[in-house]
Amino acid sequence: MTDTLAVAEKPAKPSPYHEAEVLWVKHWTDQLFSFGLSRAEDFRFRSGEFVMIGLPTEGGKPLVRAYSVASPFWAEELEFFSIKVADGPLTSRLQKIQPGDTVLVGKKPTGTLVLDALTGGERLHLIGTGTGLAPWLSVAREPETYSRFGRVIVTHTVRKAEDLAYRAFFEGGIHEDPLIGDEARAQLTYYPTVTREPFHNAGRITDRIRSGDYFRDLGLEEGFDPAKDRVMLCGSMAMIKETAELLEGYGMREGSNAEPGDFVLERAFVG
């Protein structure tokens, strides 16, 4: 008589993603949109971090990419700001989502665009291009930002004025925020620039920094001061690399989660 050994099935491997419900979608232009997702009760992140989000595919691995979380750590929902790419593997589908649809959200947020990666200072410059504004939407609604820095400057460089998504929010809406509204009204400055059409702040942010216009417009002494200024960078690789070189020229040191410094950039996006 032969004994038959029962082979226990291996437990299913936990998914690295939460299934989040689409709560709302806002199309800013034919190239930019934002959307809100439900937030799992156990999802925790620091303001400024990014997470993998995406959509399932038929019979294969989900299609995902890294997105900065645009909502602050305390918000009940997760907000994201995205570009639309007609032939993009993910964004060609993601731009068509509707309330009630499901989007996958990675369970492990990470990133260096966080306050923990900076040493103390007096002024915080949040410099972004395009959808690189997303982490600033989170950091600018973080109470610790205003307790650590006396002045917070959000810059947003785009090609056309219509691309200044969230302009109304930074020019007034944030002042009504129940948690940090009063602090933002007193301490936050919004500095938009447009590169391809007439605008009161015209040109690339790096050009305005080099010419000194950036500092004059803000009523600051020309140049970044390593003793006072702290900077975060997010957006195009060209802008990030160019600005990082400028900052190093002023004697500023790049920081990280392991070793905080004078400025930080997101190397996961830079490559």
Rank of each mutant, 00 (worst) to 15 (best):
P198R: 11
K241N: 10
R167W: 04
V7A: 14
Y214R: 06
K96I: 02
E245F: 13
T57V: 07
A70I: 06
T195N: 09
G106E: 04
G150V: 01
T206Y: 05
G150S: 10
G120F: 00
P62Y: 12
L23K: 12
L118V: 13
P135S: 15
Y17D: 06
D207S: 01
S38M: 11
Y191D: 03
S147A: 12
M239V: 11
F149M: 07
Y250R: 11
R210Q: 13
R253W: 00
P260I: 02
E9M: 09
P192C: 11
W74D: 09
T189I: 15
G88Y: 07
L188M: 14
T110V: 13
G54P: 13
A202V: 00
K26L: 01
V7Y: 08
T157V: 11
G219H: 08
V231D: 04
K108I: 07
H200S: 12
S38V: 12
G203P: 05
E19F: 10
M252R: 01
E77R: 15
F224D: 02
P109H: 02
T4D: 06
K108F: 10
S147N: 06
R267T: 13
L23A: 14
A70S: 15
E183Y: 10
V85I: 15
A75T: 10
E144Y: 03
E171F: 12
M232W: 04
D225T: 00
L115I: 14
Y146G: 00
E248V: 08
E58A: 15
G181S: 12
R148T: 00
G261Y: 05
T112S: 12
F263S: 01
F80L: 13
M237K: 14
L124T: 02
G59V: 10
P135F: 11
I53E: 03
